[in-house]
């Protein structure tokens, strides 16, 4: 995935699309106040140096970075946090025993834990996406790059006996992002849009010094007219 910070407006469309697509639970104010909100994608706001009226800030959408060398994986005693064959850093809910070691080890704070069973007062349960498991109490969860959509696209392509087209798979956040700041695709295909964007001189990865090899590339903001 590529996140173009030059066009991200911090509008939170991705965050709500993710709640809807992935049946993410709502924890309420008291739990959210102690850091237990369960967003799989969040938009961080960083202040630049400078005081009003010269104050500036910037947004940084953060989701699971789907690390190549994921710090969450070696610490899981039950292999709930494992690498899939396609390189996704997957979370196997029915293996998870809730040690929370993985969340502790994630430098991106991408993992969230179900301290309580999620509540969907009737008829809110009807909103749930039938493609996605509802996680129960004691389970760790995180962004999956909308693996259910990847699976559907792959099955569809197999049925039609064709390769998956570039841009055909869109995680919910990517699909809804109004300015198109989020781009998803096959980084292994040199002709895909993400591959071209990843090669940009603006590209960086978050906390690269940890050697986690994130699959998400951020494109720094342009400097405006002075560049």
């Amino acid at each position: 995935m590529v996140v173009d910070l030059d066009v991200c407006t911090g509008c939170q469309a991705c965050a709500v699309a993710c709640l809807a697509e992935n049946n993410v639970g709502i924890v309420g104010e008291e739990e959210a106040a102690i850091g237990r909100a369960q967003h799989w994608i969040r938009i961080e706001r960083y202040w630049d140096e400078g005081e009003y009226p010269e104050v500036r800030a910037q947004f940084l959408p953060v989701m699971c970075q789907q690390c190549g060398k994921a710090p969450c994986e070696p610490v899981c005693p039950v292999f709930a946090s494992v690498h899939s064959e396609d390189g996704l850093n997957s979370q196997v809910y029915n293996r998870c025993i809730g040690t929370r070691y993985c969340a502790h080890n994630c430098p991106y704070k991408a993992r969230v834990f179900n301290f309580f069973a999620p509540q969907f007062p009737s008829p809110l349960e009807q909103q749930l996406n039938p493609d996605v498991t509802v996680r129960s109490v004691g389970i760790m969860e995180k962004c999956t790059f909308c693996v259910q959509r990847i699976r559907r696209a792959r099955e569809q392509a197999r049925v039609e006996d064709r390769p998956i087209a570039d841009g055909e798979i869109m995680p919910a956040c990517v699909q809804t992002c109004p300015p198109g700041a989020l781009v998803f695709g096959d980084a292994g295909d040199p002709d895909s849009q993400v591959s071209r964007l990843m090669a940009s001189r603006r590209g960086i990865r978050l906390l690269e010094a940890f050697n986690t090899e994130p699959s998400v590339v951020y494109l720094k903001r342009e400097g405006g007219l002075d560049v």
Binding site: Q12, A13, A17, Q126, A172, T176, P178
Partner: peptide, 27 residues
């Protein structure tokens, strides 16, 4: 049942995109 709202890619105004509030219409 309605399970997910997306932008209509054909609609010239939003061209497949939707905002946070639009996404929450199911609620």
């Amino acid at each position: 049942r309605a399970h997910k709202l997306e932008g209509n890619p054909r609609h010239p105004l939003n061209q497949g995109k939707l905002c946070a509030r639009g996404q929450a219409g199911l609620q």
